[in-house]
Nucleic acid binder design. Structure first.
Length: 426
RNA sequence: GGAGAGAUGGCCGAGUCGGCUGAAGGCGCUCGCCUGCUAAGCGAGUGUGCGCUGUAAAGGCGCACCGAGGGUUCGAAUCCCUCUCUCUCCGCCA
């Protein structure tokens, strides 16, 4: 959420931002409502002031055992007017808030201008695509023939976009989770957390999934609970409503959670394999920082995510999302795209973003500088480190052998009982 | 699921029969004094949001906020209702 006063004072700038993001929103209505809100506010506050003054008089008269019925009678009407105006004010404020919650974040100046994903510039590349003496296969073919991935049975027990992992496949997924968490906690300084996998609507409001993206979420019937679409939601909300001490910043958290997404509107896209599932595992990194260090922390977080792929020895590139492709809450986002030889393409495996104070304002996450009484909003940053299912896809496709087996990258072997490769079960 | 207790400022904790309580007291923190250093001590200060006004920075005035929402009243932290959460006991359970 943007600051109300910021929107009021930088109207043209916000308007331009919406255009760059290709968003349509009635800002004029917002300006009118805001104007009206302030005029009613002035009126009702004046009345309340009169009531407060009269209240003191009445109190004094009663103490002196004098008659106060004239004043009381007069205040009856005033109170009635206040009631009416307060209701009117509430309605307008509600509408203002609704609009404000739908305004996306201001992109950072370093976010490139552009219309869509075609305009996302590549900012770096690491490693090389592996050379194959045979035609590399997509992971679903490798996985199914090895008997470690089973989409048919998952579809039978649940439905499309779910997967059943078998044996070494399940173990590989689990190994990746431990490997990633260990890297982030032991080498990168993050504190591991294991949050609830369901959150209430307030938390989703805080990180920006609601009210706009309700249809992307799975909601539990009869409860104000949603399955989390990403650990970002519960982990960022850990400190919702809190005032942190400056010297505890930056706070670094890493969490493994499953993620649940309805993938509404993605019919027909990526229908095969693990790439787009209703449920997938992810290790997420979340940071709470001071405003002045947030962009440095974003760069570090990106390196922390990259380190996973480097340890696994898998080629990737990093792109910077342009204004037209940038997520609703983000000011700046880097995507890491991993090389998938079986599909001859790069696929997003991590998204690292700085939200500046956008989420902090919604979730009310503040900090106090040493020796200051005033609080400020923190900046929040998060990124996948990494999407586990897609990492498993990358391992399978990049490490597949001509005989259909899959070699285990050395870094993962300690997590797999020193297994060196996955072969077809006898 | 049943019974009871509670929710006040960064934290702890008072609030009498509804009427100078933004809220006592303490802790913490900041500044000043004292001090060779540290500790202790003394003095002053220390919530947020919004509106109006306004400054070089500031400030001033007003309104609201004592878990959330609603009600009663001229007036509610204080009375009533609903909800949420926490704690204790019972039941159930991995």
């Amino acid at each position: 959420m943007l600051d109300l006063k910021f929107v009021r004072d930088h109207f043209d700038q916000v308007y331009g931002m919406l255009k760059n993001r290709r968003q349509n929103l009635d800002l004029k209505l917002f300006a009118d409502l805001d104007e009206k809100r302030r005029s009613i506010l002035r009126e009702v506050e004046e009345l309340k002031h009169r009531r407060n003054v009269a209240s003191d008089e009445i109190s004094q008269l009663k103490k002196d055992k004098k008659d106060a019925s004239t004043q009381i009678e007069a205040m009856r009407d005033v109170s009635q007017s206040i009631k009416v105006l307060d209701q009117e004010l509430l309605d307008i404020e509600q509408k203002c808030k609704e609009i404000l919650l739908l305004i996306p974040n201001m992109p950072h100046e370093s976010t490139p201008l552009g219309a869509d994903e075609k305009d996302n510039p590549e900012v770096k590349k690491w490693g090389e695509p592996p050379k194959f003496q045979f035609d590399p296969k997509p992971h679903w073919e490798v996985g199914e023939s090895l008997g470690i991935l089973d989409f048919e049975r998952a579809a039978r027990m649940t439905g499309a976009r779910f997967a059943l992992y078998w044996g070494q496949g399940a173990a590989l997924e689990r190994a990746l989770i431990s490997f990633m968490l260990d890297m982030h906690t032991r080498r990168h300084g993050y504190t591991e957390v294991l949050p609830p996998f369901m959150v209430n609507s307030g938390s989703l409001m805080g990180t920006g999934q609601l009210p706009k993206f309700q249809s992307d979420l799975f909601k539990l019937e009869g409860w104000d609970y949603y399955l989390i679409p990403t650990a970002e939601v519960p982990v960022t909300n850990i400190h919702a409503g809190e005032v942190l001490d400056e010297d505890e910043l930056p706070k670094l958290y890493a969490a493994y959670t499953p993620c649940f997404r309805s993938e509404a509107g993605s019919y027909g896209k990526d229908t095969r394999g693990l790439i787009r599932q209703h449920q997938f595992n992810k290790v997420e990194m979340v940071k709470f920082t001071q405003p002045e260090t947030s962009y440095d922390e974003l760069e570090k977080l990106l390196l922390n995510a990259e380190a996973i792929l480097q340890e696994l020895g898998i080629h990737y590139r990093v792109i910077s999302l342009c204004t037209g492709d940038l997520g609703f809450s983000a000011s700046k986002t880097y995507d890491i795209e991993v090389w998938l030889p079986g599909q001859n393409t790069y696929r997003e495996i991590s998204s690292c973003s700085n939200f500046e104070d956008f989420q902090a304002r919604r979730a009310n996450i503040r900090f106090r500088r040493k020796g200051q009484s005033k609080t400020e909003l923190v900046h929040t940053i998060n990124g996948s480190g990494l999407a586990v299912g897609r990492t498993l896809v990358a391992v399978i496709e990049n490490y597949q052998q001509e005989d259909g087996s899959v070699a285990i990258p050395p870094a993962l072997r300690p997590y797999m009982g020193n297994t060196e490769k996955i072969e077809k079960r006898a």
